[in-house]
Design a protein around this nucleic acid. Structure first.
Lengths: 219, 219
DNA sequence: AGGGCCGGATGTACACTGTACGGGCATCGG
DNA sequence: CCGATGCCCGTACAGTGTACATCCGGCCCT
């Protein structure tokens, strides 16, 4: 009831993000969102065509939180590093909403700010258009994948007793892992990985690869 | 009606996959699945605790389709290449179900077969446990991210008129892209990328990085 | 000032979802 | 022959997204 502020596309997305932060992405229903805004679910449809559109709006919101460093006097590598780490930080802070940042590309100016910053840095470093596009794609792929792994505790569930929901065929760790000896051997090393370290490892690996591009002379 | 075959965890997962292939992941409902199996929705709960468990089962199913090359006489790079390309091919063939392959790690022996093959190849090439875990993670991250990008036509929607579902604030391409000049410049290059080529580019980049690990002597 | 209008907000209704619960069934061990 | 034990299914319930019709409040035009 206190929420009698005027309804706004922005405000709706913010409140939706709050709800997702608390209850997860499936916990967001139009009715709950309407209630949280002090109205009903149908009011939202004045500003968004769909529930999907609301989700896309939430994605824009969190993407706009990513740092967009001005590249004055910064090595292009450093600019990319800052963007990537900031992206990761933002998605971890809104971990429940992270799938949205993966699914919906940045489209609004605010959400595109960090992309612009990255592109500009690469351009100043002498990358041609195609190399920039390529690098963007590789970096996006890497961060998406990293998030996907870090989210559901990928390796945690992987190490758990297999086939969690299946009622039959629970494979006994001891006996059946002898059909997959190497998997059994490596599992512990997977479990004890540190997310941040591994993220850095892969990121630097990619940056090194890019450096070779520029060394080879761009196009 | 013709479907009076005995109900089975496997058969349920297969039929669910078929339904997802046709109608997408949201098009799968327990009722439709039951009907397709010749029974009702509730019968499924004898074999799976949840709808989620069914989805995890579908994931195992498609993961088990990935090639698991025997590494006899193959360079480890070639083994990894085959696995990665096969993984990509399988996920593209079941493009609607691909998010499941990302969300649920392989747990059943069949689904783990390709992981075992990859691990074995790396081990024979002299990678220690930690390096194998690292490489697995990096490769998984890359393929997940690649899929995420290739799935929803990431760059296609990115290039489309912005904020598709929002009723207000459609940003006019010409005028507002002057606030994001570099983005505007690069967009065409993004649009004309070829998925397979870019996948190969990134994959080879990663493999080269791994080679440096082994050259440096493993640990 | 009065009347028309129109866009934002909402109430109701419908088709559909996942699944808890309780009963029916056939098969098998005693 | 009698239980009993899995498999199967029918019903019921709470909750979902949203189409559609309605309402209300402020603006413009005459």
């Amino acid at each position: 009831m206190p929420e009698r502020e005027k309804l706004t596309e922005r405000r709706i997305a913010e409140e939706a993000l709050g709800l997702i932060d608390e209850d997860g992405i499936d916990g967001l229903s139009m009715r709950k969102l309407g209630q949280r805004l002090g109205t009903t679910s149908m009011s939202i449809y004045t500003y968004f065509t769909d529930k999907e559109a609301v989700l896309a709006g939430v994605a824009q919101l969190i993407l706009s939180e990513v740092d967009a460093p001005s590249d004055e006097g910064l090595d292009w590598r450093e600019v990319v590093r800052r963007i990537m780490w900031s992206y990761r930080e933002v998605c971890h802070r809104h971990i429940n909403a992270a799938p949205l940042a993966i699914k919906y590309p940045p489209t609004t100016p605010d959400a595109l700010a960090f992309v612009e910053a990255g592109f500009r840095a690469l351009r100043r470093a002498g990358f041609d258009d195609q190399s920039i596009a390529r690098s963007y794609r590789a970096l996006a792929a890497y961060s998406f994948g990293t998030l996907a792994i870090e989210m559901n505790g990928y390796y945690a569930t992987a190490s758990a007793a297999a086939a969690p929901g299946a009622r039959r065929e629970t494979l006994h760790a001891a006996t059946l892992d002898k059909h997959l000896p190497t998997v059994a051997e490596i599992r512990p090393s997977l479990a004890e990985q540190h997310d941040a370290e591994e993220f850095e490892y892969g990121l630097e690996l990619i940056l090194t690869g890019f450096a070779d591009i520029t060394a080879a002379g761009g196009s």
